[in-house]
Amino acid sequence: MMPDLGKYAGVVLSSYVVALGLIVALVAVSIWRARRVKAALEQVEKRSKRDG
């Protein structure tokens, strides 16, 4: 199923690994940031409900 990449196999495969790693890192950072923002928004909402 894998195409014959010849002498460039190492370069091509390492590029795929780097690209996949960057995508995973971006998703992880996005999830982490979304959780932080959600927690901050919940704090603001609690404070606004408490203060009236």
Rank of each mutant, 00 (worst) to 15 (best):
V27D: 03
K46Q: 12
L20K: 11
R35D: 12
L13G: 01
R50Q: 15
S30F: 14
Y16G: 05
M1Q: 07
E42M: 09
L22D: 00
L41W: 07
Y8H: 14
L41A: 05
L22R: 10
R35S: 10
G21K: 01
D4H: 09
L20A: 11
V27C: 10
L26N: 08
R33W: 09
W32E: 12
D51Y: 14
S15W: 07
Y8K: 15
D4F: 08
R36N: 11
A40H: 04
Y16P: 00
R35V: 12
K38A: 13
V12T: 08
A19L: 10
R33H: 09
D51R: 15
S30G: 13
S15E: 00
R33F: 11
S48L: 15
S30V: 05
I31G: 04
V11Q: 10
V18Y: 01
V18A: 10
P3S: 04
Y8L: 13
R36G: 09
V11S: 03
V11G: 01
G6M: 04
A28R: 06
L5D: 02
A40G: 02
R36D: 11
A39C: 03
V12G: 04
V44H: 02
V12A: 14
M1W: 03
A34Y: 08
L22Y: 08
K46C: 01
D51T: 15
R36F: 12
V18H: 03
V24T: 05
V44W: 01
A40R: 13
A40M: 03
A19C: 03
D4V: 13
S15C: 14
D4G: 04
M2F: 03
A40Y: 06
Y8A: 10
Q43Y: 06
A34H: 03
A25S: 11
I31E: 04
Q43L: 11
G52A: 07
A9G: 04
V37W: 11
G52C: 03
A9T: 14
L13A: 03
V27N: 05
G6W: 07
V44P: 00
R33Q: 09
S48Q: 13
E42R: 13
V17F: 09
G10R: 13
W32C: 11
K49S: 07
Y8D: 00
A9P: 01
V12D: 00
K38I: 12
A9F: 06
V11H: 06
L41P: 00
L5Q: 10
V18F: 01
K46S: 05
D51W: 14
L26E: 05
